[in-house]
Write a protein that binds this DNA or RNA. Structure first.
Length: 408
DNA sequence: GCCGTTTTCGGCCCGACTGTTTTCAGTCG
């Protein structure tokens, strides 16, 4: 039982509790515990073997009850609460939550009223126009659900950062060119440089957000606009990748950039810290708070200001995952991130002698200009003749050439 | 269900948008 597997089960318990209408704070406890387990450095199997129940309780967001549930999971392979919840609902109910726009309340409603327990049944009911009879749902909801099911079935996976960044930069440059836009930036997991990115989040600042939103929605960059307000536009790129744009006033730009860069866990931790200092943070700024009343604004125009307002150094987006970066920013012990200039060499390069794109000379010159200390030329051997593998003599010639160039 | 330089009880991050509502619940990020 890995931490990731245990976290998955706690997450499903949270979903099932939500559908069954449990206390929302109890549900959140399971979600937080799941997140905590995922980022915990040591496997809970080892923790439990060494320190027992108390060891589990030392993990953040794991208290008495959840430690006991994890103990049950580790010793019996299951959690009775999970089995009981599963028995209450059909197998497909959790998949219903994967449909965009369908939350636990709606899933609970369609299950209790229409006994709809999977996506196929939901689609049929929507086509028969039965959903509109339910309280709180209407024809528009039916339409949206059908569209969401189609989108869900099409399936949009997270994409590699390298595939996403060019798309994001294209959208950002549209915004920067807009006459009403003062500044624009990529936010979300793309700005945090996560290895994979799901949605593209964009932030812009303007004195006239409604014009920017209107024009962005009409720009043709989005194949489909799913939501368009005065400060927010959501839509889909050709191919189905979803995009969210938020536009805020300049005095809130830093707060909004912080807010929409995330991660969710980092933001929650930051706002919790602010609360303890009688401050409240939202996407418009940092405000003093007294007896639940929001007072004077103390920061918001830049991210540096926002972090400084809660006694922290500015935290690079790459570190914003709630894995100790707040504590490090408070102590002044944030690590220096690796920069391009730190790269001292490259040990895997092919030349045009086999299947590379540049000649040995071009590569050597480009690396010299980058200030590399060393390079490794790794052309194919004769064993891979199809990729233009080099003979022994050709490799020796490369070595001679490189040795000669060292004096250059 | 967790947690504690306000507290062992009583809080728990915050706001935009939509659809279905005559004032708000649900969902999302």
């Amino acid at each position: 039982m890995t931490n990731a597997e245990a976290a998955e089960i706690l997450g499903r318990i949270a979903d099932l509790l939500a559908i069954s209408g449990a206390n929302s704070f109890r549900i959140r406890s399971y979600r937080q515990a799941a997140e905590s387990l995922e980022s915990w450095g040591e496997e809970i199997e080892e923790v439990y073997a060494k320190q027992g129940l108390q060891g589990l309780r030392n993990i953040p967001d794991i208290g008495k009850s959840l430690a006991e549930k994890l103990e049950e999971l580790l010793t019996t392979g299951q959690i009775s609460l999970y089995q009981e919840l599963l028995a209450q609902f059909p197998d497909g109910i959790l998949e219903l939550l994967q449909v965009p726009g369908l939350g636990p309340r709606t899933v609970a409603l369609i299950w209790s009223e229409l006994e709809i327990g999977d996506i196929d049944e939901l689609e049929q009911a929507a086509r028969r126009q039965e959903l509109r009879e339910l309280p709180g749902l209407g024809p528009k909801s039916e339409e949206k659900i059908l569209a969401s099911i189609a989108r869900y079935r099409q399936g949009m996976q997270r994409a590699l950062l390298g595939e996403i960044l060019p798309l994001g930069e294209q959208l950002v440059s549209y915004l920067r060119d807009h006459p009403r836009v003062i500044a624009a930036e990529l936010a979300g997991s793309a700005r945090r440089r996560r290895a994979t990115v799901g949605d593209l989040d964009l932030l812009a600042t303007s004195e006239h957000p409604e014009e920017v939103c209107r024009d962005f929605a009409a720009s043709g960059l989005l194949e489909e606009v799913t939501m368009a307000g005065d400060t927010k536009v959501s839509g889909l790129l050709a191919g189905g990748r979803s995009v969210d744009l938020r536009v805020v006033a300049p005095e809130s730009y830093g707060a909004a950039l912080q807010y929409f860069t995330g991660s969710q866990a980092h933001g929650v931790a930051l706002r919790t810290r602010a609360q303890k200092m009688n401050l409240t943070i939202n996407e418009y700024g940092v405000f003093k708070q007294r007896n639940g009343e929001t007072g004077e604004k103390v920061a918001g125009a830049t991210e540096e200001e926002v972090y400084a307002a809660v006694g922290l150094a500015w935290i690079p987006p790459e570190l914003r995952e709630d894995r100790g970066e707040l504590e490090a920013a408070a102590d002044g012990t944030l690590p220096d991130l690796i920069e391009l200039a730190d790269i001292r060499g490259d040990l895997h390069m092919h030349t045009t002698s086999s299947d590379g794109k540049c000649s040995l000379e071009e590569i050597a010159e480009a690396c010299r200009q980058r200030g590399y200390n060393y390079i490794g030329i790794t052309d194919h051997s004769p064993a891979l003749r199809v990729a233009g593998g080099l003979t022994e003599e050709e490799i020796i010639a490369q070595i001679h050439w490189l040795a000669w160039r060292r004096t250059y």
